[in-house]
Amino acid sequence: MKPAAFTYARPADWPEALALLGGGARAQAGGQSLGPMMNLRLAQPGAVADLRHLPGFAGVTVTGATCRIGAGTTHAAIEDGAVPGLLGRILAGVARRIAYRAVRNRGTIGGSFSHADPAADWVAVLPVFMGEAIAFGPAGERRIPLDGFLRGLFETALAPDELLRAIELPLLPAGTRWGHWKFCRKPGEFSKATACVLAVPGAPVRAVLAALDTPPLVIADAGALLLAAPEAEAARIVAGLGPLEPWRAALARTALQRAGLAAREDA
């Protein structure tokens, strides 16, 4: 199918982008979610604001111990090493398992995160870090903790007149351990259960369980998942999610166990 007729706009700066948003335009970054929805006419915006040419929308900068990733940075750029150090190794491993390279060449970290599809990779991973989403609105920049950014299915903490400008993550020290697991029936498919575990020296172990048709579950103290037998802890966490189909609950428990095992064995 072809999309319904719409007006294309290419804002030159952030205030112009906000003005277009206030006028009813739909923001577009890589277009890997909005484009198919428009082709199927599930979304029929009257105008689309292409954010790709905004200053600072893409790119990675490091200031002190903080890494700032522009919301328009593509999955492919992250896969290819745009983010430095141990944090970059972790994010590159996540990025290279997103869909296919053609999608990664255009899809963006900020577009995926703000779209808030519960099965998306960045939705399942970013909340584990003690970082912040940088929103831009009429009053300027506003900081939102990553573990509070996602409010529901396709729902975020962004106000209607705000855009996601960047994501800031702390650089990770030596000795950090990482585990990540997602269930896909074939490459490129959306996950049916995803878990990640982050163990930073001197800090509580954090974990996220996601892709269960609910907002991601952030586990602020997940040290028990690094034990030799984490099955009981995984079962306790999944039981607290409420009723799940047996196959989905089994995938969720297994994802947590395998992410914990991967983190425990990470050198």
Score class of each variant (00 low, 15 high):
Met1Phe: 06
Met1Cys: 11
Lys2Ile: 14
Pro11Leu: 04
Trp14His: 10
Trp14Asp: 00
Glu16Asp: 09
Ala19Gly: 15
Gly22Leu: 03
Gly23Tyr: 09
Gly24Val: 11
Arg26Phe: 02
Ala27His: 02
Ala27Ser: 14
Ser33Gly: 09
Leu34Ser: 01
Gly35Glu: 11
Pro36Thr: 08
Met37Pro: 02
Gly46Pro: 04
Ala47Met: 14
Val48Ala: 11
Val48Glu: 11
Val48Ile: 10
Arg52Val: 12
His53Gly: 15
Phe57His: 09
Gly59Trp: 13
Val60Gly: 12
Val60Tyr: 15
Val60Ala: 14
Gly64Phe: 10
Gly64Lys: 15
Ala65Leu: 12
Arg68Phe: 02
Ile69Tyr: 14
Ala71Gly: 12
Ala71Met: 11
Gly72Asp: 00
Thr73Cys: 07
Thr74Ile: 03
Thr74Lys: 15
His75Ile: 01
Ala76Ser: 07
Gly81Met: 06
Ala82Phe: 10
Gly88Tyr: 06
Arg89Asp: 12
Arg89Asn: 12
Ile90Ser: 01
Leu91Tyr: 01
Ala92Val: 01
Gly93Thr: 05
Val94Tyr: 02
Val94Ala: 10
Ala95Asp: 05
Arg96Leu: 14
Ile98Met: 12
Ile98Trp: 04
Ile98Leu: 15
Ile98Phe: 10
Ala99Pro: 09
Tyr100Cys: 09
Tyr100Asp: 02
Arg101Gln: 14
Arg104Ala: 07
Ser112Thr: 07
Ser112Ala: 14
Phe113His: 07
Phe113Leu: 15
Phe113Lys: 09
His115Gly: 06
Ala116Ser: 14
Ala116Asp: 13
Asp117Gln: 02
Pro118Lys: 04
Pro118Cys: 02
Ala119Thr: 08
Ala120Gly: 08
Ala124Thr: 04
Leu126Lys: 07
Pro127Ile: 02
Pro127Ala: 07
Pro127Asp: 05
Val128His: 10
Gly131Thr: 02
Glu132Thr: 13
Ala135Trp: 12
Pro138Tyr: 11
Gly140Phe: 05
Gly148Thr: 01
Phe149Lys: 08
Arg151His: 09
Phe154Ser: 11
Glu155Cys: 15
Ala157Lys: 04
Ala157Met: 08
Ala159Cys: 09
Glu162His: 13
Leu164Ala: 13
Leu164Val: 07
Arg165Tyr: 02
Leu169Gln: 05
Leu172Gln: 15
Pro173Asn: 03
Ala174Pro: 09
Ala174Ser: 11
Thr176Gln: 04
Trp178Met: 05
Trp178Ile: 01
His180Asp: 05
Trp181Glu: 13
Cys184His: 00
Arg185Gly: 14
Lys186Pro: 00
Lys192Ile: 00
Cys196Asp: 00
Val197Cys: 08
Pro201Met: 07
Pro201Trp: 13
Pro201Thr: 01
Gly202Asn: 10
Pro204Gln: 12
Val205Ala: 03
Val205Pro: 12
Ala211Cys: 06
Ala211Lys: 01
Leu212Ser: 06
Pro216Trp: 04
Leu217Cys: 06
Asp221Lys: 02
Asp221Val: 03
Ala222Cys: 08
Gly223Pro: 13
Leu225Lys: 00
Glu231Val: 03
Ala232Trp: 02
Ala235Met: 06
Arg236Thr: 04
Ile237Tyr: 08
Ala239Val: 00
Leu241Glu: 03
Gly242Lys: 11
Gly242Met: 08
Pro243Gln: 06
Glu245Leu: 14
Leu251Glu: 12
Leu251Pro: 04
Ala255Pro: 01
Ala255Val: 00
Gln257Ala: 13
Ala259Met: 04
Leu261Trp: 09
Leu261Glu: 14
Ala262Val: 00
Arg264Leu: 01
